[in-house]
Design a protein around this nucleic acid. Structure first.
Lengths: 99, 99
DNA sequence: TCTTCTCACTTTGTGATGCAAAGTTAAACC
DNA sequence: GGTTTAACTTTGCATCACAAAGTGAGAAGA
């Protein structure tokens, strides 16, 4: 019954998918915005807003190079984000054990 | 990566706690509104609105007897609700396996 | 070279949602 | 008979997730 410990920032399915996708990469690797978008099937508008929340929390880091159509944004999970995801999954596992 | 299968009705932590608490009861047993409220620490206003959503979905059944301060409302998980919770936990387990 | 197209995001708009505070109803107590 | 208490109910609001429309710049075509 540790549902109260579930980090609400990560709990939203769309953001959980973002975190999970980024966590699957080797440490330090960055994923392109457009690639992340197609992998988790979100509109760019939704993706960028979710990413901003995660970035504000320090869970991901995004970097944009270039401008206009030549621009490319890449995303990576911070170590803080990785820890937060681990806490979240631990909480989930604990919750499942209680059922 | 089955996050899209997570029933959003159950996914909300407060409602997940409600479902989990009711699921812990022997089949068919009913729990008093006030008892449920104190067990999961929700204001009565929040509890009733969450219960209504679960009831609209057919996941719980609530029954009120008496009126005014003498009234007592009891809640129970429907078999549909139990199945839905199982699907949800299965989806969660699948998701955790993918991490 | 001027216009249209495409790419890669961004911003804006909106309906739904979860939470908290205030309200209602009726029995019990003084 | 006025106040308190118990057990919900209703209302109000701030936030949020999603979708749709918008922006900026290079590429392609006339």
């Amino acid at each position: 019954m540790t549902a109260s410990e579930l980090d609400p920032l990560i709990h939203v399915p769309a953001r959980l998918r973002i975190m999970a996708t980024l966590a699957a990469l080797p440490f330090g690797d960055r994923l392109a915005f457009t690639r992340l978008q197609s992998q988790i099937a979100l509109t760019p508008g939704n993706l960028i807003t979710h990413l901003r929340k995660l970035e504000d929390a320090g869970y991901v880091d995004s970097e944009k190079i270039g401008i206009g159509s030549a621009s490319r944004t890449t995303i990576t999970l911070t170590s803080q984000g990785r820890r937060a995801l681990e806490s979240y999954t631990d909480a989930l596992r604990g919750l499942l054990d209680g059922l």
